[in-house]
Simulated assay, not measured.
Amino acid sequence: MKPELSLQLLDTHAGGDVSRIVTGGIDPLPGRTVREQMAYLRDDADGVRRLLLAEPYGIPEMSVDLLVPATDPRAAAGYIIMEVMGYPIYSGSNTICTATAVLDAGWVPKREGRQRFMLESPAGLVQIEAVVRDGVVEAVTCGGLPSYIHTHRAHIEVPDLGRVTYSVAYSGGFYALVDAAELGFDLTLDEERALARTAHAIVEAIQAEQGFSHYTLGDVGPLPFLHFMGPEERVAEGYVRSRSATYVHPGVICRSTTGTGTSARLALMNHEGRIRPGDRLETVSLRNTGFIGQFSSETRAGGYRVVNNTITGRAYVLARSEIVVNCDDPLVECDGLHHILSSRNST
């Protein structure tokens, strides 16, 4: 009998964005840090990402998070983020989902009330605060990456759109930030396809014109993301709400507003002097889900005003499952995959 290859999964979503957490079935990866293990997956074992984000197992709108043992003793677990565009070093929605998964799967024992622990992402350690009531994870707050504005209110000519005003933030990836109303959008669900087409055109124009470099990370690739900003509504003192939509890949508008998109907005508000430490921004998606970003403090680095922040959201467990990886299936590509899959003999 051929050995049966399988993966153990826990499917979750935060704000509508599905994160498929791989809890078992992958052999230990080489690398002294989670960042090095991510690089190994990217360069030598990309088949895991391709398998779980393509037919017949998944769709490009999903994300995949591989749980790995932490290499830093202060962290309870490590995780590697995989998306259709590649391997982001950080993601707020994926972190919220992963934190919920490690609690649900018992990697971190649940305790009623508030509990804190750390996860190790490819970007480094992430502080997690979870709220558990009656055994259910009702909220997760995670540290957002230090975020800053690289470019403020630049202009670019975009085919079929004309002159577009945009800013560029770094918040775990480079984001173009644009005013939705200036482009004729109300940020309603029926605009989703048009938003994706518009964002793709703007991102392509920006990529063709220039690249962006992080002050410590250097070249992190071409600008991949765009965040549409709706009008800001003052809900209470120090609390603002805004409809939002985040583009991440041709044809793909995230179901949620994304944690990194929310961090990028906080950086812009700080750059423009419209927010103070302790203030919060709630971003609301096309599907009326939301994340809350809180501006913690500002530091100076690389000549930029860098915003330290947190993101709060909730993840829901959708399914616990085991999938069988059948390399004889013509729809399944096992290249770059089977050398890291744990195997067990069929019975």
Rank of each mutant, 00 (worst) to 15 (best):
residue 275 I to A: 05
residue 275 I to H: 12
residue 275 I to T: 11
residue 275 I to P: 09
residue 275 I to F: 03
residue 275 I to N: 05
residue 275 I to Q: 02
residue 275 I to V: 10
residue 276 R to M: 09
residue 276 R to H: 14
residue 276 R to S: 15
residue 277 P to Q: 12
residue 277 P to N: 07
residue 277 P to M: 07
residue 278 G to W: 11
residue 278 G to T: 15
residue 278 G to I: 15
residue 278 G to P: 04
residue 279 D to W: 05
residue 279 D to H: 14
residue 279 D to I: 08
residue 279 D to S: 12
residue 280 R to N: 00
residue 280 R to G: 01
residue 280 R to E: 07
residue 281 L to H: 12
residue 281 L to T: 12
residue 281 L to C: 08
residue 281 L to G: 09
residue 282 E to V: 09
residue 282 E to D: 06
residue 282 E to Y: 05
residue 283 T to D: 10
residue 283 T to Y: 10
residue 283 T to K: 14
residue 283 T to V: 13
residue 284 V to W: 01
residue 285 S to R: 08
residue 285 S to W: 00
residue 285 S to A: 11
residue 285 S to Q: 08
residue 286 L to K: 08
residue 286 L to D: 06
residue 286 L to G: 04
residue 286 L to V: 13
residue 286 L to I: 11
residue 287 R to K: 13
residue 287 R to C: 12
residue 287 R to N: 14
residue 287 R to T: 15
residue 287 R to L: 11
residue 288 N to M: 07
residue 289 T to I: 02
residue 289 T to E: 14
residue 289 T to R: 14
residue 289 T to M: 04
residue 289 T to G: 11
residue 289 T to Q: 15
residue 289 T to L: 05
residue 289 T to P: 02
residue 290 G to M: 02
residue 290 G to K: 13
residue 290 G to Y: 06
residue 290 G to F: 07
residue 290 G to I: 01
residue 290 G to L: 07
residue 291 F to I: 13
residue 291 F to N: 06
residue 291 F to K: 10
residue 292 I to M: 11
residue 292 I to D: 08
residue 293 G to S: 11
residue 293 G to Q: 05
residue 293 G to Y: 09
residue 294 Q to M: 07
residue 294 Q to G: 08
residue 294 Q to R: 14
residue 294 Q to S: 14
residue 294 Q to T: 15
residue 295 F to S: 07
residue 295 F to A: 12
residue 295 F to G: 02
residue 295 F to R: 05
residue 295 F to W: 11
residue 296 S to P: 03
residue 296 S to M: 12
residue 296 S to L: 08
residue 296 S to E: 05
residue 296 S to V: 12
residue 296 S to T: 09
residue 297 S to D: 05
residue 297 S to R: 13
residue 297 S to A: 07
residue 297 S to Y: 03
residue 297 S to F: 09
residue 298 E to M: 11
residue 298 E to T: 12
residue 298 E to R: 08
residue 299 T to H: 00
residue 299 T to K: 00
residue 299 T to R: 08
residue 300 R to L: 01
residue 300 R to V: 01
residue 300 R to C: 00
residue 300 R to N: 03
residue 300 R to S: 03
residue 300 R to I: 01
residue 300 R to M: 01
residue 301 A to S: 13
residue 302 G to Q: 00
residue 302 G to S: 01
residue 302 G to R: 00
residue 302 G to C: 01
residue 303 G to P: 02
residue 303 G to L: 03
residue 303 G to K: 14
residue 303 G to W: 04
residue 303 G to M: 05
residue 304 Y to I: 08
residue 304 Y to E: 02
residue 304 Y to G: 06
residue 304 Y to H: 15
residue 305 R to N: 13
residue 305 R to C: 08
residue 305 R to D: 04
residue 305 R to L: 09
residue 305 R to A: 13
residue 305 R to M: 08
residue 305 R to G: 15
residue 306 V to R: 04
residue 306 V to G: 03
residue 306 V to P: 09
residue 307 V to L: 06
residue 307 V to Y: 03
residue 308 N to F: 00
residue 308 N to V: 05
residue 308 N to C: 04
residue 308 N to M: 00
residue 309 N to T: 02
residue 309 N to I: 02
residue 309 N to L: 04
residue 309 N to E: 06
residue 309 N to Q: 06
residue 310 T to P: 14
residue 310 T to G: 11
residue 310 T to H: 14
residue 310 T to Q: 09
residue 310 T to F: 01
residue 310 T to R: 13
residue 311 I to M: 10
residue 311 I to P: 10
residue 311 I to Y: 09
residue 311 I to N: 08
residue 311 I to G: 06
